[in-house]
Amino acid sequence: MSWEARLSTPGSPVCTPDWLALREPADAEARASDLVEPLRALRTPLVVRDLGCGSGSMGRWLAPRLPRPQRWYLHDRDPRLLAIAAGSVPGEPVEGELADLTDLAGAALVTCSALLDLLTADEVHRLARLSVEAGAAALFTLSVTGGVRLTPAEPLDAEVAAAFDAHQRRKVAGRRLLGPDAGAVAAEAFRALGATVTTRPSPWRLGAAHPELTEEWLRGRLAAACEQEPALAREASPYLRRRLDALAAGELRAEVGHVDLLVLPSRTGPARRTGPC
């Protein structure tokens, strides 16, 4: 049987609407909602920059939890996804690459979801600098950590995990992706600039409650691992079959590690930059 992913390519910045729709309920369940509470004190009208917004799932989850009025700027490279996001989030679509963003002035809050692990260390440090220069708070959710626990366990799990994590840290077009190191790198970057950082675990809990997402996650994980370590391909098909049989029987559970970061600007940090968004 083929182990190839059907809707997603792990570690790729290109996402399909179907994949994003499939993962949205699990994302909403996983996010650390207690990190939102300090954001309720932000000034209104609340200006939010949502980076790599995709189809807008972060806005749909976060906007109802924040004080109103709000104005969102939805940033993404994909015009298809921007159109979907703009249909349900009170915002203005902004098409373009994250690397082209040079200013966050005027934003009170910068957000992203499942994005930091697709960036390089330099890109994360640059994002931290822009956010701190703007005096903005930040809420970055669902960065992978590399911690995965599958029940029941199998001997091949460790090899797949090592290959997958290496794939997440691979070099793409000269860019070394952070993968599971992203959360720690981002926290260090913001703290070095004087900001206060709070982190919370935000794991996906997969299994019988999310069967389609669990299967797609398994397929994507195996495909990435086999791309990184081709020798794993010999065992990939029977391994996936055993896992899918366990899922169908209601016996498979997976905890997939993520981390959420809340960043609050320092009152004594760099001078705040003001200006129109």
Rank of each mutant, 00 (worst) to 15 (best):
A189M: 01
H167R: 12
G147D: 15
L177D: 01
L150W: 07
V185G: 00
E159R: 13
H167A: 14
F164A: 11
D122E: 15
E154T: 04
A166Y: 10
L109E: 11
P155N: 11
K171W: 13
G183I: 07
L156M: 12
V185W: 08
A166M: 06
C112W: 11
L177I: 02
V185Q: 11
A134T: 08
A166K: 09
D181M: 06
D117Q: 13
V160Y: 07
E123N: 02
L142M: 14
V132L: 10
A114I: 07
P152L: 09
L156V: 12
R129Q: 14
F140A: 03
A128E: 08
V110N: 09
R175L: 08
D165L: 02
L156G: 03
A107V: 06
E154R: 13
A187T: 10
L130G: 08
A182S: 11
A182L: 00
D165F: 00
G106T: 05
R126Q: 03
L156T: 09
A162T: 02
A195L: 02
L139C: 01
A162P: 00
E154V: 04
A136E: 12
G146D: 04
E123A: 14
V197D: 11
R175F: 05
F164P: 08
T199K: 02
V148M: 05
A186T: 05
E159I: 01
A136T: 07
P180T: 00
H167G: 15
Q168A: 07
T199D: 10
V197C: 11
A182M: 05
H125M: 03
A163D: 12
A161L: 14
P155H: 09
R191N: 00
E188G: 14
L177E: 08
P180K: 08
E159D: 15
D181W: 02
T111W: 05
G106M: 09
V144N: 02
T141W: 02
A138P: 05
F190P: 03
R129V: 02
L150R: 13
A138M: 12
S131G: 14
A108G: 13
L139A: 04
L119F: 03
V197N: 05
A163W: 10
E133K: 04
L127G: 13
R176I: 03
G174C: 04
L142H: 06
E123Q: 15
S131E: 06
D165P: 07
T120I: 01
E123D: 14
C112G: 13
T196A: 13
A158Q: 13
A121W: 05
G183A: 15
A186E: 04
R175M: 03
D157L: 06
E159W: 06
E154S: 10
L119W: 00
G135P: 01
L177A: 06
G106Q: 10
V124N: 03
K171Q: 14
A166P: 00
R169S: 05
A166D: 15
T145D: 09
V172M: 07
A186I: 05
V172Q: 09
T196F: 09
T145K: 01
D157M: 05
L130Y: 03
T198R: 12
R126M: 06
A136K: 02
S143R: 04
S143M: 09
T199E: 15
G194L: 07
R170T: 09
R175D: 07
S113I: 01
D122L: 07
A158R: 13
G194S: 01
E188C: 06
D157G: 08
A153G: 08
V160I: 14
L118D: 06
R175T: 06
H125R: 14
R126L: 04
E133H: 13
A153T: 12
T111C: 15
